[in-house]
Computed example of a mutant assay.
Amino acid sequence: MSAVSLERKPLITRDLNKFELEIANLMQKIEVEKSHKSDFEIRQENDKKKAESKVFSESDLDQAAQQTAQDFLDLSTEELQHFKQASRVGGDQENNYRTTKRALDRNLLLLVSEKVGDKEMWILPQGKRKEGETLRDTAERVLKDKCGNLLKAKFLGNAPCGFYKYKYPKAKQGETMGAKIFFFKAQILDGNVELNGGPCQDFHWATRREMEKLPHEYLKAIRLFLIDEEH
Score class of each variant (00 low, 15 high):
1 M>G: 07
8 R>S: 13
15 D>T: 09
15 D>R: 15
16 L>F: 12
18 K>A: 14
20 E>F: 02
30 I>R: 14
32 V>A: 15
33 E>I: 14
34 K>S: 13
34 K>L: 13
35 S>D: 07
35 S>F: 04
39 D>M: 06
42 I>M: 12
43 R>M: 06
47 D>I: 04
47 D>L: 04
56 F>C: 00
57 S>H: 03
61 L>F: 03
64 A>I: 14
65 A>M: 08
70 Q>K: 10
70 Q>G: 00
73 L>H: 07
75 L>V: 06
81 Q>S: 15
81 Q>M: 09
83 F>E: 07
85 Q>R: 08
88 R>M: 08
91 G>R: 11
92 D>G: 03
93 Q>E: 12
95 N>A: 09
98 R>F: 02
101 K>D: 10
103 A>K: 05
104 L>C: 03
105 D>G: 06
110 L>A: 02
110 L>D: 01
111 L>A: 09
112 V>Q: 00
112 V>T: 08
115 K>F: 04
116 V>A: 08
118 D>N: 12
120 E>H: 09
121 M>N: 08
122 W>T: 09
124 L>D: 02
130 K>T: 04
131 E>K: 10
132 G>M: 10
136 R>S: 05
137 D>G: 07
138 T>R: 03
138 T>G: 05
140 E>N: 02
145 D>R: 02
147 C>N: 03
149 N>Y: 04
150 L>G: 14
152 K>P: 00
154 K>G: 01
155 F>T: 09
157 G>L: 07
158 N>I: 07
161 C>A: 12
165 K>N: 13
167 K>L: 14
171 A>F: 05
172 K>L: 13
180 K>Y: 00
181 I>R: 00
185 K>H: 10
188 I>P: 01
190 D>A: 15
191 G>I: 09
194 E>I: 07
199 P>F: 08
199 P>Q: 08
202 D>G: 04
202 D>W: 02
207 T>E: 03
209 R>A: 14
209 R>L: 13
211 M>S: 03
211 M>A: 02
211 M>Q: 14
212 E>Q: 11
213 K>M: 13
220 K>E: 12
226 L>H: 07
